[in-house]
Design a protein around this nucleic acid. Structure first.
Length: 599
RNA sequence: GGUUCGGUAGCUCAGUUGGAUUAGAGCAGCAGCCUUCUAAGCUGCGGGUCAAGGGUUCGAGCCCCUUCCGAAUCACCA
């Protein structure tokens, strides 16, 4: 940061003094110098030709001479290639930067203060009738990572989850359990609560389809059969009783939801995600009506003859949207308005981010406009953090076709594979207890899963290849974790040998090109964090970590740290190793990926 | 049909606000490297009309227009 800023300012004042034109320092664009040229930082002078009214080469020469004259402690010398001004930075500057990175626990992060903007992030949002699957995993990991990134960018973050705990789908599970469950519980069956409920949901569907098939065989058309099947009618009756507050239904509903939540908690814990505030749809689904009535009174919405309420968004290039059914009950959109209202009562929200799949792009476009009309100040620029579908090699993930990947199974498989992988390793670490080994397997297995999902641009549909995800070679989480563990090993050994990194690094130490390049790369972390926050895109952090570690690995093979004879060089390399490990740990930390001290 | 988002190596993906005669990783294939700080690693080879065409300029994978292909969505479902 430091170096870049100083050069930017110097260039700006140089342009002013040479050509009499004002240039904003932060608009000065610097980039890393290509390896085939001498120098580390390059200024592209093309944007300033209009001001200099000179050839690119002469302009670059002017600026270069100015920099060497005015900031000789930063720019040692320069060379010009066409319109590119390559600057050789004084080594002491790089040492200083390295020192700065190491002196901070969280280099590149911005502090959070009580005055920081308050950002609320909604993610996860499960239904309580079945366990979490791979799609939820992507949602949870993205939501968590985004929350970390926003916080690192100096925002106060509230992580929230809206649980869809009511509706016909829960009644289906409840009904099936009553009919065929024989009082089975998570304790008696040994199943996780969410899986138990999910199984009854599937069971309902199975019997329901049989009923429909039978009715069709008797000559009923399929559409009608779906509505007339005794099971679905019974489920609807149950929903009505639920809405009336029937205590028998409610208490069963509470009991079964508790099972599900216990199951979800286990999965969330394994994924390493948590929430600051959980909303339940059963408590919020009636809230939106009032706001809709308010909008109706103000003339934003209109009522049709049958009594239903609509918003006309044709002016915004969208369609008309239903807000209240003719029977006065609310729809999905109404509920989201109600939830927004409650949230705003609870927190002074400056920015709202919804982590929801891209199949709901239209919904959030509409929601944004509606909230804006209804006077929510953050409505207009709410963020729908929209992510793509997870596809499997043999096609899409569809629960109906049975091609879902269960989250718990997946997590378990990843950890088992990591355990197997480390057992197969040739150079095993000897002095490791079984407990430590299990913990390492957990960290590595989860790291593999998380990294595999988070390295892909969230907007894109992604292919989840189970075989490839457990391949720990290449651009993977374990590769990064492994490099981290090796660096930690070096640092431990240095300490054991009594080699300390001094508080003040020797500014006279010589630096190789690779060392300078690594320091430069480290500097880029701050920018990457900022970019991730601006673009709502955690994937660039994942890719940054990989690039950094890849570069360090090459360094690792070319140079030795502990056997270096020159004490100055040794200390600098040690400091460099520490900086890399620190930045990697912080970077992966933003993604919710842990790092092992040994593996 | 309308809207939104995608299309980069055989496969999975990067590509920072447009930058340098040569667009990067990984996987898969081939060839090397463990008496050397952890080989889950490193080095080398092969593999591309950045979907197609036009435009903007000193310069385009990136910006604009057109076309082609793919996905999502446009419910008194959530």
């Amino acid at each position: 940061m430091e170096i870049t800023n100083r050069i930017q300012e110097a260039v700006a004042s140089g342009i002013k003094s040479l050509y009499g034109q004002e240039v904003a320092a932060e608009s000065v664009q610097l980039q890393e110098t290509r390896p085939e040229f001498e120098g580390q930082v390059t200024l592209v002078v093309f944007p300033y030709l209009r001001m200099s009214r000179k050839r690119p080469e002469d302009t670059a020469q002017d600026v270069g001479e100015y920099l060497v004259r005015e900031v000789p402690d930063v720019v040692a010398r320069f060379n010009v290639v066409k319109g590119f001004l390559n600057l050789v930075i004084a080594p002491a500057q790089w040492i200083g930067l390295l020192q700065e990175i190491n002196s901070q626990e969280h280099f590149g992060f911005r502090p959070v203060t009580p005055e920081s903007p308050l950002v609320m992030i909604e993610f996860s949002s499960p239904n309580t009738n079945k366990p979490l699957h791979l799609g939820h995993v992507r949602n949870n990991l993205l939501g968590w990572a985004l929350a970390q990134v926003m916080e690192a960018n100096g925002n106060r973050v509230v992580k929230t989850n809206i649980v869809n705990d009511r509706g016909i789908h829960i009644c289906k599970s409840m009904l099936a359990w009553l009919k065929w469950g024989n009082g089975e519980t998570p304790e008696t069956s040994g199943k996780k609560g969410d899986h138990l409920i999910g199984d009854y949901y599937v069971l309902f569907d199975k019997h329901y389809r049989e009923e429909v098939k039978e009715l069709v065989a008797q000559g009923m058309d399929e559409e009608q059969a779906r509505q007339e099947a005794p099971l679905i009618k019974e489920a609807h009756e149950m929903l009505v009783r639920w809405e009336q507050g029937d205590e028998e239904v409610r208490s069963l509903w509470r009991r079964m939801n508790e099972w599900v939540y216990a199951g979800f908690d286990e999965t969330y814990r394994a994924l390493g995600v948590s929430f600051d505030k959980i909303y339940y749809e059963s408590e919020t689904y009636l809230e939106g009506k009032e706001k809709v009535e308010e909008g109706l009174a103000k003339g934003f919405f209109y009522r049709r003859e049958d009594g239903s309420v609509w918003a006309d968004l044709t002016k915004e290039g969208l369609d008309e949207k239903l807000l209240l059914r003719s029977d006065g009950t609310s729809v999905y959109m109404t509920q989201d308005i109600g939830t927004a209202k409650l949230r705003f009562q609870d927190y002074p929200i400056d920015k709202m981010i919804y982590v929801v799949g891209n199949e709901q792009n239209y919904h959030f476009q509409v929601l944004s406009i509606l909230l804006d009309k209804l006077g929510f100040k953050w409505g207009r620029d709410l963020v729908h953090f929209s992510y793509g579908m997870v596809e499997l090699p043999n096609g899409k993930m569809k629960s109906r076709e049975g091609t879902v990947v269960d989250a718990d199974d997946l997590i378990q498989t990843m950890i088992e594979d990591a355990s197997q992988m480390s057992a197969d390793k040739v150079n095993r670490l000897e002095d490791i207890t079984p407990e430590e080994a299990r913990e390492i397997a957990r960290i590595v297995g989860m790291g593999a899963l998380k990294y595999f999902i988070l390295k892909v641009d969230a907007r894109k549909n992604m292919l989840f290849n189970p075989e490839e995800s457990i391949d720990f070679n290449g651009n993977t989480g374990p590769f990064i974790q492994y490099t981290y563990a090796r660096i930690r090993s070096i640092l431990r050994k240095a300490q054991a040998q009594g080699i300390e990194i001094p508080a003040e690094l020797p500014t006279t130490a010589e630096l190789s090109d690779k060392e300078v390049s690594l320091i430069q790369h480290l500097q880029g972390f701050a920018q990457t964090v900022r970019q991730a926050g601006q673009d709502y895109n955690p994937s660039c952090i994942a890719n940054y970590c990989y690039d950094l570690v890849k570069e360090y690995n090459q360094f690792y093979h070319d140079f030795s740290v502990l056997r270096e004879e020159d004490k100055q060089k040794q200390v600098v390399r040690l400091a460099l190793s520490e900086a890399v490990s620190k930045v990697v740990r912080n970077g992966l930390g933003l993604l919710g990926i842990e790092v092992p001290e040994r593996m």
